[in-house]
């Protein structure tokens, strides 16, 4: 099981040909209190970099992008019902969607944890 990160502060945890996607702890802290989450429908396909979900704090709305291409096989209804779950555990129970990957090789272009930490430190 490997976890990769994007420059836009999504994380993706891969298990076989499926993966769980969410926003990083850093992103959740920057957003502040999450008050609304909009998730895609199960069955919808995205290309890498597409707007996939929306997360809103009191201040502003932000897009969540598809870290890699794939089809949505499950969404986390609990963060729609209780958006504060994103702040409570952004890299755990506050996950957004599960994807069936259509091109796992795209994962190679994403950052590992050490590279992401450096990306945040230099931001």
């Amino acid at each position: 099981m490997t976890t990769k990160f994007t420059k836009d502060h999504e994380w993706i945890r891969v298990e076989g040909d499926t993966a769980t996607v969410g926003i990083t702890k850093h992103a959740a802290e920057q957003l502040g209190d999450v008050v609304f989450v909009e998730l895609p429908d199960v069955g919808k396909s995205f290309s890498q970099g597409d707007d996939m979900a929306v997360v809103e704090s009191v201040k502003a709305a932000s897009d969540v992008y598809a870290p890699v291409s794939g089809e949505v096989i499950e969404v986390n209804q609990s963060i729609v019902d209780a958006p504060e779950g994103v702040n409570d555990a952004p890299e755990g129970d506050g996950w957004f969607v599960k994807l069936k990957l259509s091109d796992p090789s795209q994962l190679d272009g994403l950052m590992d944890e050490a590279a992401y930490k450096e990306h945040v430190a230099n931001a």
Binding site: G32, D33, V35, S57, V58, K59
Partner: peptide
């Protein structure tokens, strides 16, 4: 300052 460490919602 747009917010302090407390955060917008708590400040409100």
């Amino acid at each position: 300052p747009v917010q302090f460490p407390t955060g917008v919602k708590e400040e409100h």
